[in-house]
Design a protein around this nucleic acid. Sequence first.
DNA 1: CTCCTATTCCATAGTTCTATAGAATGAGAG
DNA 2: CTCTCATTCTATAGAACTATGGAATAGGAG
Lengths: 230, 230
Amino acid sequence: MSQEQTTGRAVKDGLYEQFARIGKAVANPKRIELLDLLCQGERSVEVLARAAAMGVTNTSAHLKVLREARLVETRKEGTRVFYRLADETVCNFFLTLRDLATDRLAEVDQVVRDYFEARDELDPVGRAELLARADDGDVIVLDVRPSEEYAAGHIPGAISMPLGELERRLSSLPRDAEIVAYCRGPYCVLAPQALKLLHRHGFRARRLEDGLPEWRQAGLPVAVGEGRRQ
Amino acid sequence: MSQEQTTGRAVKDGLYEQFARIGKAVANPKRIELLDLLCQGERSVEVLARAAAMGVTNTSAHLKVLREARLVETRKEGTRVFYRLADETVCNFFLTLRDLATDRLAEVDQVVRDYFEARDELDPVGRAELLARADDGDVIVLDVRPSEEYAAGHIPGAISMPLGELERRLSSLPRDAEIVAYCRGPYCVLAPQALKLLHRHGFRARRLEDGLPEWRQAGLPVAVGEGRRQ
DNA sequence: CTCCTATTCCATAGTTCTATAGAATGAGAG
DNA sequence: CTCTCATTCTATAGAACTATGGAATAGGAG
């Protein structure tokens, strides 16, 4: 029995050691931010560095850690390296981690409330509701993320309208239909800013609860490609 | 816009910092082992220390980290302190982490194969299959974990038969029915050892895929309490 | 071929994490 | 009250992690 236990100990240690590799990979805020970004699609090192406000060297080191934990994979194109999630389940894991943190840590709520004040007062649209109403055609769905992210995956029927282009293209939007905007997720500022702009110009607009990763995680259909120019 | 970005940066940093608190909590193999143990039910510090092969001081320190990440909570009873998961979702998070590691890291497979050799050759019973056949009553379900864990939650209809008592109580088992044994999960040695013993004595026995935490996660019914003595 | 650029490698200093031993706390027993 | 025991706190040395700058690498442009 004691012999059994000692050999069992070595095995257990090895096993938990492996599990902890994943844990260590998400033990750093910058690495989590990188994972969040990569949930939106593949990116080059430089783009990731800029988006996460880090030096390129540092970013490269963090990406190496993620790669060694097999959470991300790389693809070389000419002189630059593109990183992407190794698997869709990695994105699900990130979402699980994020939701757990949101559930368990009151501090998350505090941070969010300080910036996204009254985020929930914007009365977000549920995924099921949107799906039902999109079929009826009485709602315009706007994807306000950068167009590359739209191309990498978007809600079927959604129009790509990056936040930077929104004001210029306001006239193409109907004033009678309700507008639903979405972006990267609940902590992304793109959709809230789009709503502010739309409301200022008198449009009837709400945001979708969460963003595209959550939509995909829920098993709802995702379209890829450029989509026709509206 | 740049002002927007800098204030947004502080918020993002704060947010990812919070997410990373959860990540840091699972960045150590011993802490993951403690979470695994706590998925089976609440435990005192001393019991946890013994089960994870650590000193009490060290165990206490790790538990403190888990508590500061709000993953576990405590209850005092006289002179000793019992730890338990703060929420059922913590167990789900652990399972997600474990499954991701199993999916992504070939090394996990290696470790498992070295010890649980031919684990899958034992032809485990699926949860759905067990549920169907248990209704028909042509299968005996054995819970071979310690009896406290059985009391904290078990598959309805299962008989508590801790591994240590199994040999002594063999005569109470029918020789015509098929026996299905389960324990703590896919990496627990209790059920495989029980199967070895049962096979040696000529019983027809298989193991359930996974263990009770996975059963619970799947949303299947869980009974609590001692159950009648068989 | 040489230059240019994106990325990774390497070295380093500062910080944080881990395990252990001894002291302190706090509840129960006598 | 004193004694005992489980647990936590404190201190510490060693290990691992993080950010940063400069060097090395490798592919593309001219």
